[in-house]
Design a protein around this nucleic acid. Sequence first.
DNA 1: AGCAAAGGCTACCCATGAGTAGGTAAGCGG
DNA 2: CCGCTTACCTACTCATGGGTAGCCTTTGCT
Lengths: 224, 224
Amino acid sequence: MPDEDQRPPERARRLPRAVRERQILDAAVRVFSRHGYHAASMDEISDVAGVSKPMIYTYLGSKEDLFGKSIQREATRLLEAIQAGAQPDLPPDMQLWHGLRSFYRFVAEYRESWTVLHRQALTVGGTFAGEVTAMRGRAIELVAALVVSAGTRKGLGEQAEFSGAGLAAALVGAAESLADWALDHPEISDGVLASWLMNLVWLGFNDLVEGQVWKPLPETHSES
Amino acid sequence: MPDEDQRPPERARRLPRAVRERQILDAAVRVFSRHGYHAASMDEISDVAGVSKPMIYTYLGSKEDLFGKSIQREATRLLEAIQAGAQPDLPPDMQLWHGLRSFYRFVAEYRESWTVLHRQALTVGGTFAGEVTAMRGRAIELVAALVVSAGTRKGLGEQAEFSGAGLAAALVGAAESLADWALDHPEISDGVLASWLMNLVWLGFNDLVEGQVWKPLPETHSES
DNA sequence: AGCAAAGGCTACCCATGAGTAGGTAAGCGG
DNA sequence: CCGCTTACCTACTCATGGGTAGCCTTTGCT
């Protein structure tokens, strides 16, 4: 009886390996972001991916491997998105401004990527927590460099150096937290979010010396 | 063969129920803070508590119950610590200042409580995540009220109202992130940490109107 | 056609860990 | 000293879920 398969879900059969790997990673990120590492089951991931469990093991390895690869892919995506925005030949404040905007655009577009990186990766002790905190640490150092360079340029000198790391940690945390908040307020544009932080941090920092208002150049931002 | 038990660890036998419950909760907080909800095992908790597993079930209920009670106790502790610092009859900036100092003192003293609340509680979907985010939300609202009241008082009016919630979210996130950072830098006092945030946020916010430097009254803070 | 390799699955194994059954022993009122 | 309650334990059951063995099926090449 040929042609008896009415192929109802059209479960795309026999795709090349690279495609399947992408599908599986997509599913993994989605499931991990929803339940966290431990509560996520390989069965559910395979189900979401539209693939049987052994495929995951033959293609991506163990659950830990899979989680690691998910983290790695999303982290790379995020960093690339931010770096695409913050051109290193701009002045510090503009670097920060564009980096922040890119960050918020990314979070809005890839909520699940963000969730996995921000919430879930830290809870799995061991290698991943290390990788992610290292990545976060690099972000903090980058921001710290911006802050210190700007502070020194403005005449703060030693004090900037001393408190730069802490301030950078606070700023990164503020940006992350604001990202979470923004997930529940999609009507707020990335430009507004970034400008809030710029006004908070840049003003507060620079005004230790002199009171001048930072604002983005008119051509680059579009907010209400 | 009597007296053959050389009672090596002197495992305190037959204590009253209230004491055991405290011991078990202490152990639970410690283990949950280290491994997270799912990776923590009741066996390890009972081991750390110096008590057998059935005791936990007869006294505190299921694993979920136990986690909930741990969260609840630590959250209450934290809120009480903060409220003990921030007297509501002070002006907004001083409330924030003292609240922040109390917060950082608490985090330094009860690292595990903080870890459980900040990192682990969010990863367990369902009731607890709800409770904790609700608690966090209340904190944000509180801060938002301070910020808006100060902003309105300073003449910002509508703009303060509009961005107050977002700014509060950012500030709370900055405070949390700075708390994590401070765990690796114990030499930084709570006064310094709090003053960093005050200078960042309060200055940046108020200076949208006029450039005035916030600083704590000399008698209350002790920093380098 | 024939056949190897790659894509894919069902059906299982088994360690881990939540939760419990049922028993022992110490205090305490009578 | 007798029984009743409370504190407490050892030793199990059993569901969940990570991981795998073994088999089928399509495709592409000669």
